[in-house]
Write a protein that binds this DNA or RNA. Structure first.
Lengths: 129, 129
DNA sequence: TTGACACGTGCCGATATAGGCATGTAATCT
DNA sequence: AGATTACATGCCTATATCGGCACGTGTCAA
């Protein structure tokens, strides 16, 4: 078998750089497909397809204006990602950072001592696990 | 040509559900490959491969303990995502939400009136752009 | 009405995985 | 030393895109 999830959720939609660019552009307000294509320097079909994906996951909404289709951002759809990320925020806020530093330092030293029979199992490891 | 970006950044790494599960598991502390495989109910090679990707983008760090490899989370690597997301946070915090609601309501009504010659261009749209 | 626009899609080729299976390697056990 | 355990990889198959190109449809201009 293969790839489990289709590009069917915000995580996947946002994983594509070009798609992020589109969202960034739309963050500045509504834009038509042509405008986006010109701005990102890509062919119109490409933009249309990415917008299709973004629309499927509800990241953008469409509005018709004559023969143009105006797309606008729906940031709310990014919330799941933000929520998931929230769990890890502590990782880059102060104390945690410093602990990381310490761990990496210890590791480096360990690497230097190059194994050896010693390493009686967690010899000098802080908190051992 | 084809696919532009390889799974070489945090965005892509996290786009895969199984990979998120692994990170979630590691959020609880260091774990060996075997432990993770058992916990996620998947074959060991699968876990090893995902860990490989996570390691390449620096989302996890490895430490050797005998014949086991203990992986631990490096949440800091998620920061870029968080940073990118920060720009859209306002989207789901109060005022913006309400505005979205209003816009969608207007749209619904527009849909009802079914185009028609009227729609003189942004007839009753708030902020028109 | 005819022609120019603005889009959305389908089809195609090249490429990037995800997971299954088997194998190679290093460390631990007997 | 030989067997066993814990992993990392390579190879293979099925599948999912990404971008390019051509085309069909709806809308606006003459």
């Amino acid at each position: 078998m293969a790839r489990a999830s289709t590009t069917s959720d915000a995580f996947n939609a946002v994983a594509e750089p070009r798609r992020r660019q589109i969202l960034d552009a739309l963050a500045g307000g509504e834009h038509s497909v042509g405008e986006l294509a010109q701005r990102l320097r890509v062919a119109q079909p490409v933009v249309s397809k990415h917008l299709r994906v973004l629309r499927d996951v509800n990241l953008v909404a469409r509005r018709d204006q004559g023969r143009r289709r105006l797309y606008r951002l729906n940031g709310a759809a990014l919330r799941p990602i933000h929520e998931w990320l929230r769990r890890y925020e502590e990782s880059w806020s102060g104390a945690f950072d410093r602990m990381e530093m310490v761990l990496q330092t210890l590791e480096a030293q360990e690497e230097l001592q190059h194994g050896q029979g010693a390493e009686t199992q967690g010899s000098g490891h802080a908190a051992q696990r």
